[in-house]
Each structure stands twice: as structure tokens, then as C-alpha cells.
Design a binder for these strands. Structure first.
Lengths: 122, 122
DNA sequence: CAGTATCCATTTCGATACTG
DNA sequence: CAGTATCGAAATGGATACTG
């Protein structure tokens, strides 16, 4: 949908970035992979709250976008590990910047939220 | 939904940040406001592709989160301007980092996409 | 263990028409 | 011009059950 008939901001690079990461799990999955290869099941535990379906789906898209590499071992029981590609690793820094912002300003946002719900800008 | 009963990564700051910006329009709207106050109608033109409904909805949420300030002038015809709050302005840098990433690596992602759709990792 | 398929509830978003 | 209301289509995501 990005850049089909956009006008100005419509096809700026921000749109591509948003299309890549603007869903519920992508950023968290990338964060989960940022320390090194992780198994499918371990990711589910690590992230907490994601279903296997959504994890697989997210990983598949990241794989298709060249950000994640899937490594399956022919063993029993099966073992599959996921890791960031070099390209994927470069995305960690922007995500980290975002996370740092949240760490620094998260409280301010929460304050604004319940300030608004009580006083409504009186 | 964020942090209700998360386990590990579930309540790291990344989750808050994602919940804030992980939708189709938030980042683009913030980008549109990054240069200074803009009127409602101008934002629609500037962004390209957003409906007035979604723009208003996005702005309302950003307002509730303390990131955007709404300024209405009692004139005819009505004039309403939106601008970033100081807090909102601090979000521009992380967004810019992301945009820069997209500018630098967007082609690599696009390459990965159609490499995958043709050769399927031969 | 890893992954898929199916079903279903919720959410998201666009089109349209309307108010002040 | 700015904003709201309503409708419906489509995407999203969770639960569950199943396969290899």
C-alpha cells in the first residue's frame, strides 16, 4: 500500500520503515533476537504473550524482508534457530533509539494520559 | 493491553513505544508536524492518502498522549492548527533515526523481497 | 519441537453523508 | 474548514486442534 499513489509524505522513507515494523510484534521479536540465535520455543517464552502462530508469521515476514535468517537442523526432536541477518542487525540501533526514548519519556506519556482522563484540559 | 500480564520482554519499554507508534498513520502524522504548526486540511494534503477521519483520530490520540497540541481559532471560516508539544518534539529524533535507516537500507529490503519471491532461497 | 489450518472476535480503516 | 456519525469491508490476532 505504500507508495502506490501517494503524494508527498506518502512515499518518503518513513513509510517503508513504518510498513516494516508497525505491527504488534515485529519490534519485540527483533529485540528478542538482538542477543543472538534463539529457538522458536524460546522466543515464545522470552517474549511472553505471543502465540506460536503470530511468532511464525512475524518471523516469516522478517525472513522475506531479509532481516532474519532461519536455520533448521535435521534432528529429532526438530530444532530451528532464528538469527538476525547483517541487514537485520542494522535495524537494532533505530529500535534501540526508540526504546531509549520510551525509557526516558514513558512516564511523561502515562502522566499525560491520566491527566487528560481526569481534567480534560480544564 | 501492554503490560497486563506480560512475562519478560512483555513489559520492557519497547512495548510502550510500539503501542504508541505502531499503527498506519502515527509516525507519518508526527513527521508532518515536525516542521512546525500545520492546519488540519494541510495535513491531509501533505500526508496524502489519509482520510480526515483517520487524521482526526490519530491527532486525538497523540493529543491524549501529550505529544500534540491542538490550537483552535475562533474565526470564520474555522481554523485549527496542530503542533508538537515539547514532549512530542523529542520523539522526532527516534523517528528520524528510523527514517534514516529506511533511506539507507530500504533498497536492500526491497531486493530481499523480490529475491525471495523469485528464487525462494534456491 | 516446530509448524499449519481453521474458526472467530476484535480492531482498523475507508467511503459517504452530515453538522457547526 | 473542521469535525462527527455510520456503515461495511478487510486485516489482525487469539484459541484450538492437528500434522510431521
Amino acid at each position: 500500500m505504500s507508495g502506490s499513489r501517494g503524494v508527498f509524505l506518502a512515499d518518503c522513507p518513513a513509510r517503508l520503515a513504518v510498513d516494516l515494523i508497525a505491527d504488534k510484534w515485529t519490534v519485540v521479536v527483533l529485540a528478542g533476537l538482538s542477543e543472538g540465535p534463539v529457538r522458536h520455543g524460546d522466543l515464545v517464552e522470552l517474549i511472553g504473550g505471543i502465540s506460536r502462530k503470530m511468532l511464525t508469521q512475524t518471523l516469516r515476514r522478517l525472513e522475506a524482508h531479509g532481516l532474519v535468517r532461519r536455520q533448521a537442523y535435521a534432528e529429532a526432536p526438530p530444532r530451528v534457530e532464528y538469527e538476525l541477518t547483517p541487514l537485520g542487525a542494522t535495524l537494532i540501533e533505530p529500535i534501540h533509539t526508540l526504546t531509549e526514548w520510551a525509557r526516558a519519556n514513558g512516564d511523561a506519556v502515562l502522566d499525560a494520559i491520566d491527566a487528560g482522563s481526569v481534567t480534560r484540559k480544564k
